[in-house]
Nucleic acid binder design. Structure first.
Length: 896
DNA sequence: ACCCTCACG
DNA sequence: ACGTACGTGAGGGTG
């Protein structure tokens, strides 16, 4: 096989790398403040392009850093002038780029007086003469002039990992020119980016025409006099010197005097130690994990080819049969993957499943009647058989639908990946696996998406996909658990999130009974009111229009009626509630619009929306709680969202009348934490004044008002003072700013600032904690809850004020919101356990951040009340008491 | 697909 | 000078 020489244009590719990841600039910063976007992209490039090529010789050429004077500068003073200054964020990465090149086992080279092009040009000719196949990688089209039958020029398109290959044949096909003619084309046209001119008025098209006719520059000028009289001819003659100067500038040197030769370029693979050190310096966690996954860390000599093969070659996947089941029955641990036709696993159709482990191999089948097989069933239901999977809650529900009770789960990759890092988590196995250096196709690639969704008819194709998923899950377990341990998150995973996922699975499967008749009746009444309002609005407006269209509404209010524009949005006038409320006194139509909006929302989102998702099978609503979505550790709820059922207005709150117990003589029971976030704040800051208020069970907002407004203990707190104090307390929890508070309270920024200052004087430890947590965030790049739930803040050191400020507010808010989430999660696990142990009929139905909703038989009510409230208020031990309030009644309306 | 608006904690 | 309160999901309009 012909030996390979690889020549890389370092400057051009690094430049591309920087701009390919430019939008990530602020996200990719080490805690020390070094930008790494170009480094990340350059590393990707080296890994995906260089390693598979396995060259014998390799070099990365750089433009000389010092001594700008090349012969080109002498030839034309303006050469490459007028370029934008290189950004400092890019410059600071230069040094590490060279280190990265070395760690990957390639050589760096630069030489004063030469550009990278010339080094590449010279070595490419030397290599060719010595019988090598030469490959040049660059982002610069000029280098295509170097292409020959043995020299291929690869040019990166879009980013740095997609490549177009230029052979002489391809150049001919694409440009209609030979590589040599590329130079003469530039002689005629000049180069705007290098800032030198060619012949006046000659561009791409003309140059191509001329070269087709005359072949090259010398021949053209030899025959220029024979040309017909034209402006172009005059220009060619007048600019002859310019053209020849441009030709020299465009010609890459192929016979430079270099201080190195081919023998200095031997490539013998990446240097693992160097890579580990570099990746650690640069905080390249993914790249480090990938290295570890390839098991290259401690064995410097392991061949890269072997490691590559290991990561990309999966075990063969075989169709499940009796023999396989018999073998599986003997294993202690296995991976399981079930694929479905949609996200909503309550209703989705089952596609196929895979099961297996590293030792016995992986098996798949479309036939779900296998789950009636006693041996397979035992495997799933035996808690001693440890299961590894991706999304335990989903699998619990799917197996529950098949009549099985999933037990023994030890590794839920989706949960672990979420706990390790919530940022950029899309809950897709393929992307999360890639964080650990394991690669497999996404579902979309196998099934298609949207209207094109289709299950492959080819069994092997389908089985491979499922089997490979199972294998990736199986093999990533140890690394993922090691990372958890390193983050001190093993307890959070094993004792909170994993058990919680089964509590949630039960809640979802249980469902919340809905009285459809009641909902439909409300819908009819709403329709009548909405129709009336519509008529009134049209009448006042003097025309019909779509009230739901903010565009049309804006035109009516602000153009036809000339009402004052209070706020604008990106796309036009704002018609949000706070705007309309200000306009209402001036125009009677506005209050009608407000009422219309309110009712239309209730009708469309809640009446119609909920009716559409009531199961025809059991008349219940089965939401899905997303356990791995929020950045703070809260749950979210979808299809439908049961965490935003109306409460604040009476009209909306009536919707809750439709949420009823699933059996006669049952009640709905709700218990909620009172002021949990402020209590958490008092506990983690240890502020004595706030702690005292809670220990005395005072009205916290009134006490805050007393402190901020300097009222005596016997003085009365008026409603306005309390309202202000309440807003300040909210603001504190959100990571306060004077701007935000002033906007919320409608006061001046100066007054808001004073409130905040007074507040911090009265609650000094809260102030200290806020400062300390921001400092910690800047230092570590993340903040934590009481249970070590982590939130990374990639923008905490951003140069952009807004992004940085947002990250700082988040640093203050997330530990509070997240710790409150930790607490209710622990309470849910304990409540569920107690209900099971005491054989109660009560069922947990919904969690709404600080509230749990149950249904239970009337006669259990007192027992459940006692149990739930006591478990909730003792869920964790804080230096501040937790307080729980409860309500019950025939529907959710009364239970809050 | 994105924006705006609005429902909840 | 900058220009936002923290965390979510869903529906309707628009391009």
């Amino acid at each position: 096989m012909t030996k390979k020489l690889l020549l890389i244009d370092g400057n051009s590719l690094a430049f591309r790398a920087f701009y390919a990841m430019y939008q990530q600039l602020d996200r990719m910063v080490t805690p020390e403040g070094l930008h790494t976007n170009a480094l990340v992209a350059f590393n990707n490039f080296l890994e995906t392009i260089i390693l598979p090529m396995q060259p014998d010789l390799a070099l990365v050429a750089w433009d000389a850093r010092s001594g700008k004077e090349t012969f080109r500068g002498d030839l034309y003073a303006e050469y490459k002038s007028g370029r934008d200054k290189t950004p400092v964020e890019f410059k600071e990465q230069f040094l590490y780029l060279r280190e990265m090149v070395e760690a990957h086992g390639l050589h760096n080279y630069e030489q004063i007086g030469l550009e990278a092009d010339d080094i590449i040009g010279t070595l490419s000719r030397q290599g060719e003469a010595a019988g090598y196949d030469v490959f040049i990688i660059t982002g610069d089209q000029d280098l295509t002039q170097l292409a020959t039958d043995h020299v291929t020029v690869k040019i990166t398109k879009k980013g740095v990992t997609q490549i177009e290959e230029y052979t002489p044949a391809h150049i001919q096909e694409k440009f209609g020119l030979t590589p040599e003619q590329i130079i003469d084309k530039k002689a005629l046209t000049g180069d705007t980016s290098d800032n030198y001119p060619g012949v006046t008025k000659v561009g791409e098209k003309t140059a191509l025409k001329l070269l087709t006719e005359y072949h090259d520059l010398d021949n053209l000028y030899a025959h220029v006099d024979e040309m017909k009289k034209s402006k172009m001819k005059e220009n060619l003659i007048a600019d002859k010197d310019v053209a020849y100067r441009a030709q020299k500038l465009a010609t890459i040197i192929t016979d430079a005097d270099l201080e190195i030769g081919l023998t200095d370029l031997t490539y013998d693979g990446p240097k693992t130690k160097g890579l580990v050190e570099l990746f650690e310096t640069l905080h390249f966690k993914q790249a480090l994990n990938k290295l570890k996954a390839h098991q290259l860390v401690d064995q410097d000599d392991t061949s890269v080819e072997a490691a590559e093969a290991e990561s990309s070659n999966f075990h063969p996947v075989r169709e499940l049969d009796d023999a396989a089941v018999a073998t599986l029955a003997t294993v202690d641990s296995f991976a399981l993957q079930i694929d479905t036709t949609s996200d909503n696993y309550h209703t989705a159709d089952l596609i196929a499943f895979a099961i297996g482990n590293d030792k016995v191999g992986y098996f798949a089948s479309r036939d779900f009647s296998w789950f009636e097989n006693d041996q397979l069933k035992a495997l799933i239901e035996n808690p001693a058989k440890k299961v590894r999977l991706f999304n335990a809650k989903e699998h619990w529900v799917l197996l529950h639908r098949l009549g099985l009770k999933l037990a023994g789960v030890d590794f839920d990759f989706m949960l672990v990946a979420y706990l390790l890092d919530t940022v950029g988590n899309d809950n897709v196995l393929a992307t999360l696996a890639s964080r650990f250096g394991a690669y497999l196709p996404e579902d979309e690639e196998v099934y298609g998406k949207g209207a094109k969704f289709a299950v492959p008819t080819d069994d092997q194709l389908l089985y491979n996909h499922l089997g490979h998923k199972a294998e990736v899950i199986d093999t990533l377990r140890d690394q993922a658990f090691a990372d958890l341990e390193e983050h001190q998150q093993s307890h959070l995973y094993h004792d909170i999130e994993l058990p919680l996922s089964f509590v949630l699975a039960k809640m979802e499967a249980q469902g919340f009974m809905v009285n459809e008749d009641r909902l439909s009746k409300m819908g009819q009444e709403l329709d009548e009111k909405i129709a009336q309002l519509k008529d009134q609005i049209y009448q006042i407006a003097g025309e019909e229009f779509n009230i739901n269209s903010t565009k049309q509404l804006g035109e009516l209010l602000f153009e036809k009626m000339n009402l004052p524009v209070i706020k604008k949005t990106k796309t036009g006038y704002s018609t949000a509630v706070e705007v309309l409320e200000q306009l209402a006194p001036q125009a009677p139509i506005v209050s009608h619009i407000l009422e219309y909006r309110q009712l239309a929302k209730i009708k469309s989102t809640y009446v119609d929306g909920l009716l559409a998702v009531v199961s025809p099978v059991d008349q219940k609503i089965h939401t899905r709680f997303l356990q791995t979505l929020t950045q703070t550790g809260r749950l979210s709820s979808v299809d439908p969202n049961l965490q935003n059922i109306p409460m604040r207005t009476e009209e909306g709150r009536k919707i809750r009348h439709a949420f009823v117990p699933s059996q006669p003589d049952y009640l709905i029971f709700g218990a909620d934490y009172s002021q949990i976030e402020l209590r958490v704040l008092a506990a983690i800051t240890g502020d004595p004044n706030m702690k005292k208020a809670f220990m005395d069970d005072d009205d916290i907002h009134a006490e805050t008002a007393r402190a901020v407004f300097g009222l005596g203990p016997d003085e009365e707190v008026d409603a306005n003072h309390r309202r202000t104090a309440k807003a300040v307390n909210f603001g504190i929890v959100y990571g306060i700013s004077d701007f935000g508070l002033s906007k919320n309270l409608g006061i001046s920024r100066k007054d808001a600032k004073e409130f905040i200052e007074t507040y911090f004087r009265e609650f000094p430890k809260i102030h200290d904690w806020m400062e300390q947590i921001k400092e910690q965030a800047h230092r570590d790049g993340f903040v934590e809850t009481i249970e070590h739930r982590r939130r990374y803040l990639p923008e905490i050191n951003s140069k952009n004020f807004n992004r940085r400020s947002f990250a700082e507010r988040t640093a203050m808010n997330s530990p509070i919101q997240g710790s409150a989430a930790d607490i209710i999660k622990i309470a849910m696990i304990k409540v569920n356990q107690a209900i099971e142990e005491q054989n109660l009929k009560a069922k947990m139905l919904v969690q709404v951040h600080d509230e749990l909703v149950f249904e239970c038989p009337q006669e259990e009510l007192e027992q459940v009340r006692e149990l739930v409230t006591s478990v909730m208020d003792s869920a964790v031990s804080l230096s501040v008491p937790l307080k729980v309030e409860d309500h019950s009644g025939p529907t959710w309306y009364e239970a809050k």
